[in-house]
């Protein structure tokens, strides 16, 4: 039974690979397609004025959708690696009393609110200049890593329901908006926003993505760093 399943998986994977190779061979040669001019011609209908954001979240929105899924899968891989053993969360701030930690603590307390502010700015700026959900999420994640390294935030062990909800919320918002747009505005077309409300929908998607990507990227560090800190607490 198990080997039959393996054969099935191999056949399906091979079929998928052949289809992908076929699609690549079918696509027109890149020399004849002038993408940047096409983007600048259509940018009025995208709801944003920055061409990179227009491509990432409107014209090629499904690329971004798949990218978020890949990041979530990577985190699931990390969670699977951690095994099933349940441990007590180490108490936050177990080495905060040492004098040498005071500078780091002070820095973290000053920097983290600023980083949250910068993340909000990057999210908002994405509509008309460089910025957007990925960069904002990365800044949020960096704030989480800083809090963890300075001992203010314990490493994550078993994700509780609220953390799980946060991790998938961005993807869920993205999928809900994709489904809603497909049902109402443009039947049968994935992520074809109506131009009038495209700006608002993109901002909604990016807000959800910022939160989720921040948690996912921070999770890659905070789940993996759990063991090291756990060892230290034992000594």
């Amino acid at each position: 039974m198990r080997s039959l399943l393996n054969v099935l998986v191999i056949v399906l994977s091979a079929a998928l690979g052949l289809v992908l190779i076929g699609v690549i061979l079918e696509s027109p040669s890149p020399a004849r397609v002038r993408l940047s001019e096409e983007v600048l011609m259509q940018i009025g209908a995208s709801g944003v004025t920055h061409p990179v954001t227009a491509v990432l979240l409107n014209f090629r929105g499904y690329d971004t959708l798949l990218e978020v899924m890949v990041l979530l899968l990577a985190l699931l891989g990390v969670l699977a690696q951690m095994g099933k053993q349940k441990r007590e969360n180490p108490p936050a701030g177990f080495y905060l009393t040492e004098p040498r930690m005071q500078v780091l603590l002070w820095l973290a307390r000053v920097l983290v609110p600023l980083m949250v502010l910068v993340a909000g700015y990057l999210l908002w700026a994405g509509g008309h200049q460089p910025g957007g959900a990925f960069q904002a999420g990365a800044v949020l994640a960096a704030a989480g890593v800083l809090l963890n390294l300075s001992g203010l935030l314990p490493s994550w062990m078993e994700p509780a329901w609220n953390l799980r909800a946060g991790l998938v919320s961005g993807l869920l918002v993205f999928l809900l908006i994709a489904a809603a747009v497909m049902m109402t505005a443009s039947p049968g077309l994935l992520l074809q926003y109506p131009p009038a409300s495209a700006g608002m929908l993109i901002l909604l998607v990016e807000t959800g993505l910022t939160l989720s990507l921040g948690l996912i990227l921070a999770g890659l560090f905070l789940f993996l760093s759990g063991d090291a800190i756990d060892d230290e607490a034992d000594k």
Binding site: L122, Q135, A138, A142, V145, L220, F221
Partner: peptide
């Protein structure tokens, strides 16, 4: 390419470096 610069600094240098 400021967009890629931001992503590189935040993810390439920052988060990967921390890991």
């Amino acid at each position: 390419a400021p967009d890629i610069a931001l992503a590189e600094a935040a993810i390439g240098a920052g988060l990967t470096g921390a890991l």
